[in-house]
């Protein structure tokens, strides 16, 4: 009898753990899905002519003046800049292209990493 009770406890316990674990996974997945859709926009822009810190600093300064931009990261290795926008903000591709061109560099292409395109 004790053995039956012990086995029943183990099975029940395992079932509970499993269902709780699945519940957690489900919740996490649901939360992640929700967060992605409400994340601020993030653009990755490929730029030609980025060869030194002066170039990087120039783009930081120019995009830093844009109200919609929360932060900018310049990667001289990959020749990309990543623009992190403030919540509920967006910048048209034509505007980004103009800012880069007016700064003396060449806009190649851009993609939206997350957020609403």
């Amino acid at each position: 009898m004790k053995t039956i009770l012990f086995l029943s406890f183990l099975i029940t316990g395992f079932s509970l753990d499993q269902s709780q674990a699945l519940s957690v996974i489900s919740t996490t997945s649901s939360t992640a899905t929700t967060n992605i859709s409400t994340l601020p926009l993030q653009y990755k822009v490929q730029v030609n002519g980025l060869v030194c810190d002066f170039c990087a600093r120039a783009l930081e300064k120019v995009f830093g003046r844009e109200k919609a931009v929360e932060s900018i990261k310049v990667d001289l290795n990959s020749k990309h800049i990543v623009l992190n926008l403030k919540p509920n903000q967006q910048i048209a591709e034509s505007r980004i292209k103009k800012l880069i061109t007016d700064s003396g560099y060449h806009f190649v292409k851009m993609e939206t990493l997350h957020g609403k395109p």
Partner: peptide, 12 residues
């Protein structure tokens, strides 16, 4: 005056 700039993928 910057008269002309050529921006290439890895050079300028």
């Amino acid at each position: 005056f910057l008269l002309k700039r050529i921006n290439a993928p890895h050079s300028q």
